[in-house]
Simulated scan of single mutants.
Amino acid sequence: MDMRAESAAAAMATELTVVVPTFNERENVPLLVERLDRALAGIAWEVIFVDDDSPDGTADAVRDLARRDPRVRGIERIGRRGLSSATVEGVLASSSPYFAVMDADLQHDDERLPDMLARIKAEHLDIVVGSRHIEGGTLEGLNRQRQAISRLAGKAGRLVIKADLSDPMSGYFLMDRRVFDETVHNLSLQGFKILLDLFASAPRPLRFAEVACRFLPRQHGQSKLDSMAAWEFGMLILDKLIGRYVPVRFVVFAFVGGTGLAVHLVTLYLLSFAGVGFAAAQTVAVIAAMTWNFFLNNLITYRDRRLRGFALVRGLLTFYAICAVGAVANIGVAEIVYSDRGILWLAGIAGAAIGVVWNFAVSNYLTWRRRTG
């Protein structure tokens, strides 16, 4: 490559990639690109929208823009959900030395991006966080209930990070790509707060600064914060607290199994009360418990791999088969332990432990195996 070609390539290279996870944000996509164009004038930038197969056609809107503007790129994920994992995929698809993460809902203060980029370079920082809780920052885009939830979640988040962040729940930050690469393999990818995950997973304390940002009212679409988002946030905290010792997915799977036991006993009692013979009642109770466990696991334990359509039916049948083998293993191990030790409770616990480990391991591989594409 000659000197002129090298100079042209350097001029075309992007300095900043803005990663924007999306779900049902079709109306906001062109508006955000317009705002980035104004805010990042004079900076070589690109934006990568990572869309989780939005039914409103968000990915189509991104492709339409990308045909006219080479700075716009899109990734459409099929069969996968999650803000944190979407963010990671967007960053990995970039080659810029710096990247920023922001929402598509136009609530983040995009005008602060040049200041955040200048500061991370001037002070040789790892990350600059847009904070709503320092002087100059605002929470005008949140109602009182959401503000209270944000403060409570921030306190919970500080259980797993050592950094003195004023706004650990911020979804708006700018980071050095090299530091991200040092951290990415330690991320749990649980929930929707990737910033908290990054701070909790970094192999060393991150050099950071915070800049005051306004959190603006949403213009289009609806907030994605719901009870399931709160559950996922709790899973992130749990993963960072105990994940090094036991997979948090296994903990949730075992919890679901405990609720299934309650379903089993209630079903058995009701059928027996109705005059159904024990053998028949026990059979129905077992099926009811397995069915309950399958659908609850599909809803929460494997939310990121949720089965739908025919895959749901196939998954249910494989789950029945796996649990049947697990029950045999449970009984066999319990019998061995009881014959050897003669302690009833120890035999019961040993059998149950083998059963739940078998069910989790095989279900994780067969029923809810990770899909790509």
Rank of each mutant, 00 (worst) to 15 (best):
G137N: 11
A280F: 14
V328K: 03
V356G: 01
R68L: 15
E46K: 05
A281L: 09
P21R: 01
I48G: 01
L40V: 03
A289D: 11
V252Q: 12
S188R: 13
Q107A: 08
A11R: 10
A8M: 07
H220I: 03
I336F: 10
N364M: 00
W345K: 00
G79L: 09
H264N: 15
L32G: 09
G351S: 13
A324L: 13
R77G: 00
A361L: 14
R80W: 07
R158I: 02
Y365F: 07
D37S: 15
F208G: 02
R68K: 14
W345H: 00
E335Q: 06
V128G: 01
R249E: 11
A327T: 13
A350P: 06
V313I: 12
V33M: 02
L92K: 06
V18M: 09
P168C: 01
G157A: 05
R119D: 10
D304E: 13
V356H: 01
A350I: 04
E89N: 10
H108P: 00
L159Q: 07
P114T: 08
S339F: 11
V50F: 12
A281Y: 14
I161F: 06
I237W: 05
G57F: 02
N24Q: 12
V33K: 02
L16S: 03
L241P: 02
Y98A: 11
C213K: 02
E34Y: 01
F295V: 07
V337T: 11
H124T: 14
V276H: 12
C323F: 13
Q145E: 08
V62I: 15
V246M: 13
R151W: 00
K162M: 02
A61H: 04
A86V: 08
A229G: 14
E123R: 08
R341S: 12
V211P: 00
V19W: 01
N143L: 08
L270N: 04
A8N: 05
D53F: 05
A66N: 05
L16H: 02
L159E: 07
L366V: 13
A324S: 12
F250M: 14
S227H: 07
R112F: 03
R35H: 04
R38E: 15
K224T: 14
S54R: 04
V337N: 10
V128E: 01
K121A: 08
G171T: 01
N293W: 01
I120Q: 01
A104K: 09
G234M: 11
R204Q: 12
N330A: 09
V356T: 11
I343W: 06
F208S: 03
G332Y: 08
L268Q: 02
D126T: 06
P97I: 07
G141Y: 05
V325G: 03
G191F: 11
G136A: 07
T367V: 15
D103I: 05
I242Q: 03
A118M: 11
M116V: 00
L312R: 12
L32D: 12
L316M: 06
A5S: 13
L31R: 14
V101P: 00
G326L: 05
R151D: 13
S170D: 00
L16I: 07
R249N: 09
L113K: 05
M228D: 09
I78H: 13
